[in-house]
Amino acid sequence: MARIHKTVTGDGFLAKQPTNKTLLDIHRRMVRIRHFEERAGKLMEDGKIPGALHLYVGQEAVAAGVMVHLTAEDQITSTHRGHGHLIAKGGDFDRMYAELFGRSTGYCKGKGGSMHISNMDLGMLGANGIVGGGPPIAMGAAFANKFRKSKHVAVAFFGDGASNEGSFHEAANMASLYKLPAIFVCENNGYGEYTAQANHQAVVDVADRAAGYGMPGVIVDGMDAVAVYEAAGEAIARARKGQGPTLLECKTYRFYDHVGVRGMGLNYRTDDEVKKWMKRDPIKLFEARLAEQKVLSKKQAEAVHAEVLAEIEAAVAFAEQSPMPDVASLLDDVYSTAG
């Protein structure tokens, strides 16, 4: 099969431009992710949130641009950097912060935490502590959609690092073989944990790997929400029509460290590189575009930020006031006792 491989620029050549309502929806999802993560990072550094957080700051355009096409019946699998995916899928701040705080009111009753945050009702089949854990599960969900003859799709989010795991390759092969309604969204942020892409894979474009599985590979500017929206829209439409999976590579960057916030002064990447990418902050780029198109003024954008920040304050308070899980619940849900 010929290599299908194109670069999407967000100029609208693939699909019709999103409506203003959709643009505002994408914007709000991105802002929600950004502020949730900023606050979560601070809470972790202050020692209020236990354990490790992998923050999604910098990559918001990917989650928002993809998820705006999906309903709760469409499934996704996420990564250890998964808060953004759940927020974009409709996650509730109260229950998300509660989970990060390890409280019984969290989405996972405090059993999962950041790396396993999930909500089955929203079709969010889990963040995943295992790099490459998600793609086979998304492939299985896509299989269920096809088995039921539904039009729902399953999206696997994963990174450039995960694209070296055998699990990704097995999932990609089977999804293509069975023509499953799956979309493999690679968030190439240039690093597998602390190792630069050039030091962990010989290809520059993960999308090249699509050719090996007989599916289209598309490269998109992952800092451009409209570009992601267009490319994801095409891949999802293709999947819904029964034409099989697509590998969509979004070139993006995480502003903060692999774990936690501290993004500068580490040896594995230069401060100049981080600053260069921060100049292409996906939210700032998108807001400039929305202002230019007179979809959202600067003042209106500020109001969105303020609303989200207020919601976050309330959610953090909810989480902090929520009870810890009862010790007696430790052994609950190891097994289903039904059936």
Partner: peptide
């Protein structure tokens, strides 16, 4: 029939079961 892909087979089952099969 699946490919000789045990990660794929178990992953298929986990995802399909999570989705109700």
């Amino acid at each position: 029939d699946t490919p000789i892909s045990e990660k794929g087979i178990i992953g298929l089952g986990v995802g399909a079961a999570a989705a109700g099969l």
